[in-house]
């Protein structure tokens, strides 16, 4: 990757990751008002703003947990753009009603746009993966849950009363099944393009 400098606001990402109440509170105090304003001006209300903000923070937390999330721009810009993307998606989903968007160019930094885009994509994929996981048969769901919780395949095999070789083969076939479910969903192709 490039040698972009990590922004000092990385502390907000690290704070979220550590579940630091102090930092989470600071994020609300400093960055929520702008998002709430934006959503209220664009066909939303305060409850919807609360959901969008909470959802955005959870996505950031998950991304930082699973992959590395290195902030190369101010948190303010990144967070606002992410919330905005999520809100526009939300509006599109329920687009029966007339949507009026007051578009303004707020940030020129491409870093913020790019990072917000990546995080949003990550969140959409997670939602899709979760949805597809729930579509798997019970046997696969149980096996995968056990596999990733227990970690040792030997113990998994024992707890399910099957041989080690069978458990391992079954694990790959179940993830294979999940791969197929994901790949065949129209949403996945939209996300991957």
């Amino acid at each position: 990757m490039s040698e972009k400098k990590i922004h000092e606001d990385q502390k907000y990402i690290d704070g979220l990751l550590k579940n630091n109440s102090f930092i989470i509170q600071a994020i609300y105090d400093k960055f929520a008002p702008k998002v709430i304003n934006y959503i209220k001006q664009n066909s939303g209300d305060s409850d919807q703003a609360q959901d969008i903000i909470q959802d955005s923070l959870i996505t950031i937390y998950n991304q930082a947990n699973e992959k590395k999330l290195e902030l190369t721009c101010p948190f303010d810009a990144y967070f606002f753009l992410l919330c905005k993307r999520k809100w526009l998606n939300e509006l599109k989903k329920s687009s029966n009603k007339e949507v009026t968007i007051k578009e303004e160019i707020l940030y020129k930094g491409d870093d913020a746009q790019e990072l917000a885009f990546e995080t949003d994509l990550f969140g959409e994929k997670q939602a899709l993966f979760t949805e597809m996981f729930n579509k798997l048969g019970t046997a696969c769901k149980d096996l995968l849950t056990a596999t990733f919780k227990i970690k040792s395949m030997e113990e998994v095999a024992e707890s399910l009363g099957v041989t080690y070789a069978y458990a391992r083969k079954k694990k790959s076939l179940c993830i294979g099944k999940l791969t197929e479910l994901v790949q065949s969903s129209p949403k996945f192709n939209l996300l991957n393009n």
């Binding site: 699973e66 994929k125 849950t145 990733f148 791969t179």
Partner: peptide, 10 residues
């Protein structure tokens, strides 16, 4: 990607 997702999820 799914392996990594499941790993972190659980």
């Amino acid at each position: 990607e799914l392996s990594s997702f499941l790993e972190h999820k659980f």
